[in-house]
Design a protein around this nucleic acid. Structure first.
Length: 489
RNA sequence: GCUGCUAUAGUGUAGGGGCCAAUCAUGCCGGCCUUUCACGCCGGCGACUGGGGUUCGAAUCCCCAUAGCAGCACCA
């Protein structure tokens, strides 16, 4: 082949994965995932964490899990563990964990520096009054205080001489900046209550300050976060410039909604309180706990999120994309079983007693088979035997359904698969009488009661496929009952 | 109100002046394979928001319009 054709072919071949990063040093990249512990993680967090994780794995370097817990009103004890559990499930390549609540002294130190170089001032204006001035591009009197005065007031803040809501520290930006979001924003506040679960403090940095200081001190080279932070990036630029620091490279991905679910932590919390949802792992939610319960693999979520990428376009994520990603992972390994919903007991006239041996996994002969002994009566799904005609019970034999004055009669019709195919007989799942266990399949449309094979009893916490129904995770097993959570077909 | 970002098939994505009558995945339809309506294979369907401009040439650059989103907290 001619060289230029080869080259063309090469160009045609798309590079898989995310676009390469610029400014990657010899030691790779330093990136972060920075959730705040106000509830469990959901698919939105998964996107942020996997995008960053992708690049750290690609280029090497460090991946910092930074827990942003500087708002005592929004953190509580148990959320930390919830968060760490979710992180573990995701399987991120985390190299270190940093709690911002451990670093208050650092923020104090840098704030003092910023004040002393004239980059920030202490403001005692009423928040509402300041907002009106700011919107009118008018500076407040505090802005003119000299650094010495500001430092004195800062010390008084530290000493506890002020009450919550009466004082703040503002970065001196440009009070006439065309973007009102940029004008002299706050970077510290006092919080009297509730007490912080991890530290004894009243004075807390606001995120624009703690984030800027930490990103610099922890050596971030690249930051990937949602576009709700675009304005924050520009605000933080003032801090970087005052300190003479070099900014990391930023990417802001667009807003992601997911069909049919709410991702807002507060909305989910409310739904749980009202009983709309059973808990954080309710099957209708987009939390990681919910999708883990349904048997989705973290790897599938990762693949789906990397496929979405870091585009700034707002997207509406479809479950189908996640279903496909998960199926690719789970189909090769999930053992197959029969689940019969709304079981109807059927006596098959004239049928021989035989043992069916369906494969546990048609893609993997080594997985072996189940043994389903037929002794005259079986259970069939009610929906499948409504109309007269021929059906084939999978791996067993054919049956002709005849209507005897409204009562269906099942007549053995031979074991020829060929014949069943020729007659377009549905091949359906079934269960031998006496070899079943009660099974509830929880789906987003509600629970479905039925029977399943006894083999499912020892598949606790495993992802299985109910043939012709779909993939599910075995959530609970007792002696006579199985509870499974449906994922997708 | 002010500031900013974005706009490619149902969904997600590639493409950043000619190689684009536009990529890939998913979805849907048809066929094959197969004791699952799974997997796999083959074929098909389906998109550059609208209008101007620049240019020999625009999905790609510019402007306007429209739509969506984000920010304007002493939350993150």
């Amino acid at each position: 082949m001619a060289p230029e054709l080869l080259e063309k072919k090469e160009k045609k071949k798309r590079e898989t994965g995310l676009r390469p990063l610029d400014n990657v040093g010899p030691d790779g990249v330093v990136m972060r995932f920075a959730p705040n512990p106000s509830g469990p993680l959901h698919l939105g967090h998964a996107r942020a964490s996997f995008l960053n994780d992708y690049y750290v794995r690609k280029y090497g370097g460090r991946y910092v899990l930074r827990i942003e817990d500087t708002d005592p009103k929004r953190v509580n004890e148990e959320n930390y563990q919830l968060l760490l559990d979710d992180i573990e499930w995701l399987g991120l390549d985390i190299s270190e964990i940093v709690y911002q609540s451990d670093r208050l002294d650092i923020y104090y130190e840098y704030c003092e520096k910023l004040i002393s170089i004239g980059g920030a001032y202490v403001c005692t204006c009423d928040a509402e009054a300041f907002r009106e001035k700011k919107n009118a591009k008018v500076a407040c009197p505090c802005r003119e205080q000299d650094p010495e005065t500001n430092l004195r007031m800062w010390q008084a803040m530290l000493d506890g001489d002020y009450a919550e809501g009466t004082i703040t520290v503002r970065v001196k930006t440009d009070i006439e900046h065309p973007d009102p979001a940029m004008r002299d924003y706050s970077i510290f506040r006092l919080v009297d209550s509730p007490p912080h679960p991890r530290c004894d403090a009243r004075l807390y940095p606001l995120m624009n300050f703690s984030v800027a200081v930490d990103d610099h001190l922890l050596g971030m080279t690249h930051v990937i976060r949602g576009k709700d932070h675009i304005a924050n990036t520009r605000r933080q630029q003032y801090i970087y410039e005052y300190f003479g620091w070099e900014m990391p490279e930023y990417f802001h991905y667009g807003r992601m909604s997911i069909e049919g679910v709410v991702l807002s932590t507060s909305a989910m919390k409310e739904g749980i309180a009202q009983g709309t949802y059973t808990g954080w792992d309710d099957i209708h939610l987009g939390t990681l706990k919910a999708i883990a319960r349904r048997g989705f693999k973290a790897e599938a979520v990762r693949n789906a999120m990397v496929d979405i990428g870091i585009g700034q376009t707002d997207i509406s994520f479809s479950w189908e994309n996640l279903f496909a990603a998960n199926k690719a992972l789970v189909d090769p390994i999930a053992p197959r079983y029969f689940f019969v919903s709304n079981p109807v007991s059927c006596i098959i006239e004239g049928a021989p007693e035989i043992v069916a041996e369906p494969c546990l996994n048609p893609n993997d002969a080594a997985a072996g088979c189940r043994r389903l002994p037929f002794t005259g009566t079986l259970y069939a799904p009610a929906d499948e035997i409504q109309k007269a005609g021929m059906v084939r019970f999978k791996d067993l034999f054919n049956v002709r359904i005849e209507d005897d004055a409204g009562t269906p009669v099942f007549v053995y019709a031979g074991s020829s698969l060929e014949e069943a195919r020729r007659g377009h007989a549905p091949i359906i799942q079934w269960l031998p009488k006496g070899e079943t266990v009660q099974c509830t399949l929880h789906t987003p449309n509600g629970p479905v009661d039925g029977l399943c094979e006894r083999g499912v009893l020892n598949k606790y916490d495993k992802v299985i496929q109910f043939e012709r129904v779909g993939f599910a995770r075995v959530d609970e097993v007792t002696e006579h009952h199985v509870s499974a959570y449906f994922a997708h077909r």
